[in-house]
């Protein structure tokens, strides 16, 4: 088990990463807190050390993506809205994102993952393949299709 200080440091360091992964995976803000709790509690209770910072970061990405997957799998979660959330739901149409981010979030989920991991986190196709347990070539294909779609949406030049 990790000290409170370690957990605090991890939240500061990886909080944004977890938040962004929740954004591309969940879309619903309400579930983000659940994911935060799941991921950082898992970290807090984890005894095994990390080989490196890269290892630690990859661990956070994998655990967050799995947590999101588990959450979405839950039928109850996916079909219901708690009473506490209900009043705020109409007002909460979601924060305003930049057009680029809106375009990325409009992509199918499998494209969103690779776009985020490649363009923001800077992972190579091989690394993304390892993270998502996908063939490297599949990752290449996903990336190129995502780019195409974004170009269509944004009408950009496509320099990747």
């Amino acid at each position: 088990m990790r000290s409170e200080r370690e957990v605090h440091t991890a939240i500061e360091r990886y909080g944004d990463t977890v938040q962004r992964l929740c954004l591309i995976r969940l879309k619903s803000h309400a579930d983000t807190e659940d994911i935060f709790q799941t991921v950082f509690l898992k970290y807090a209770l984890r005894d095994a050390p990390f080989d490196s910072e890269a290892h630690e970061k990859a661990w956070f990405i994998r655990v967050t993506l799995n947590a999101c997957k588990d959450l979405l799998k839950s039928f109850f979660r996916s079909r219901t809205v708690s009473l506490e959330e209900l009043p705020g739901l109409a007002a909460q149409a979601g924060p305003e994102y930049s057009p680029v981010l809106e375009a990325v979030l409009a992509l199918p989920q499998k494209y969103r993952d690779v776009v985020y991991l490649h363009y923001y986190e800077g992972y190579t196709a091989a690394e993304i393949g390892a993270l998502l347990k996908k063939n490297t070539n599949t990752v290449y294909t996903l990336l190129s299709r995502a780019r195409e779609q974004l170009r269509e949406t944004l009408g950009g030049d496509g320099d990747a």
Binding site: G15, D16, V18, Q19, R20, L23, F36, Y97, S98, V100, L101, V104, V115, Y116, Y119, Y120, R147, L150, R151, L154, G156, D157, G158, D159, A160
Partner: peptide, 15 residues
């Protein structure tokens, strides 16, 4: 596009 996507994600923070 790379930069745009990066800065788009970079604007997202955990509260």
């Amino acid at each position: 596009m790379r930069k745009e996507i990066y800065s788009a994600f970079d604007s997202v923070h955990a509260s």
